[in-house]
Design a protein around this nucleic acid. Sequence first.
DNA 1: GCCAACGTTGGC
DNA 2: GCCAACGTTGGC
Length: 151
Amino acid sequence: MRYWLMKSEPSDVSIDDLATMPGQTVAWYGVRNYQARNFMRDQMRVGDPVFFYHSSCEQPGIAGIAEVSKVAYPDATQFDPVGKYFDPKATSQNPRWFNVDVKFVRKTRLVGIKELRGWPKLSNMRILQTGNRLSITPVDPAEWNFIMGIL
DNA sequence: GCCAACGTTGGC
DNA sequence: GCCAACGTTGGC
C-alpha cells in the first residue's frame, strides 16, 4: 500500500464537491503530465489512502482524505476532439493518458501549506519543495502518519 | 497579477 | 540529442 497526495483546485473539485458527488467518487481525468500519469497507471491501487489537497486558491493545503477506488483506465477526455484535454496523438488502441477514480473518505481541518512548511518532520515532502508542480505525489509513510497525528 | 520553476516542443 | 522558446503551475 502506498500513500498519496493529489492536488485539486477547489474551484474545480473541492473536498465538499467530492463528498456530494454520486458515489462520493470522481474520475481523476485531465492529468497531462507523464510522471503523474505513471504514478496512477503503475503504482496506485484500490484502497491507497490519499490526502486531498486544495491548490491555486485562497487557502492552499490539505483539506481531506480520500482513497483510490478504481485502478487506472484510459482517460476518456483525451478522445474528445472538442474538449480541452483532447490529445490528437492518442488512440483507443494506444491511449496515452490514464486516470484512477478517487473516493471521499472524510473532510479534515485545513492544514495549510504554511503550517506544513513549519513542521521539520515534513521538510522533505515533495509538495513543499520549491518548484514542485506535480499534481500527484507519493507521501512517505512516516509523513502520512505524522500528518494524521496533527489533524 | 507576478514570477520562479519546470516540462514540453520543435528546429537544427 | 541539444537547447531556446514557450506554456503551465501554483504560491504569494
